[in-house]
Design a protein around this nucleic acid. Sequence first.
DNA 1: AGAAAGGGAGAACGTGCGTTCTCCATGCTG
DNA 2: CAGCATGGAGAACGCACGTTCTCCCTTTCT
Lengths: 185, 185
Amino acid sequence: MDSATAREQALDAAEELFYGRGIQAVGMDDVRGASGVSLKRLYQLFPAKEQLVEAYLERRDVRWRGRLAEHVARCGDPQERILAVFDWLESWFGEDGFRGCAWINSYGELGATSARVTAQVRAHKGAFRRYLDGLVADAGLPGALAGQLFLLAEGAMVTAGITGSTAPAREAREAARLLLRATAR
Amino acid sequence: MDSATAREQALDAAEELFYGRGIQAVGMDDVRGASGVSLKRLYQLFPAKEQLVEAYLERRDVRWRGRLAEHVARCGDPQERILAVFDWLESWFGEDGFRGCAWINSYGELGATSARVTAQVRAHKGAFRRYLDGLVADAGLPGALAGQLFLLAEGAMVTAGITGSTAPAREAREAARLLLRATAR
DNA sequence: AGAAAGGGAGAACGTGCGTTCTCCATGCTG
DNA sequence: CAGCATGGAGAACGCACGTTCTCCCTTTCT
């Protein structure tokens, strides 16, 4: 088996297990079993578990923001694009196996012990925040709105994860709509 | 040493350690060292670590909601009371050792493996949500507003925890103020 | 064909930790 | 004083898991 595909398979298994069960609850042996990549090869590709965790978060970050941006870009109107963020959240919350935001969960698990994980969580949230900044600027709205939308989105992710409901996305969307109207005047 | 005070000392130490370092990163021996309560006694009081964790979350829930309600009750005006929630969040975020919401962090750590912890997180968030429901009803505002305020508060807690800044509380307060004005008419 | 390198399966090693046990000191009861 | 319960200190036990090692098979190069 090719080394690049072994890496992908390992990351596929790691993502499903880490996200679904939590990072600390998953052993390297579980990753081996789910991926079919032997322990020897796993440790060649990722010299320690922490590096597998980092690679998991990094790849998921790229994909997550890509999926969001792709969905949002389908909207032409700048204000609609802002609301489309919350529509996408709703469809994400409804996916099988949804269990909250991977970065918020990772922060809860490892934020106090791993500086690398904390840095990756901050980087991910910073990138999402800047993405919202861009959408708000494109709509010609004041920058302060982006922070408020960000908080709504984060609150929705956390609440959807804990309750298992998609409703927070719609509530956040409605709040965002009101804030847009109030801010645009 | 009295059994009741041993229990309090154990819980004091457990709370500081679990909240500050994460639950899984803290061993029963750490709790013993920090509390001065011997292992034998610890296991008499809490037959397993999970029960110590539950007692920690439960006691913190009562205290957390008590402190919030106490602060909010100092405001006479019903609409001001709603905004006072976010003022209290800001002072909480600024406390030494603040590291985000204990329940959100616990959910990230143990939500996938411990049904008891998940239930306690849901109970805590449900109680906070109902508290907001009450404040909104007292102000004569429509119930849908409470859900939006709840999401703002949750987003602020998560973001303050991850970034270590108190700013999310002010951003959430400003968003809440706008939603109040937009909803009140 | 023979040698050598690579990889898989899984045993082995070391450590951390939840939990229990041993041993001993202390203080109370008859 | 004898005896007994209580509790502390810390060793001991069992297990899980991150990491490494052993053994064997396959493939490839000469």
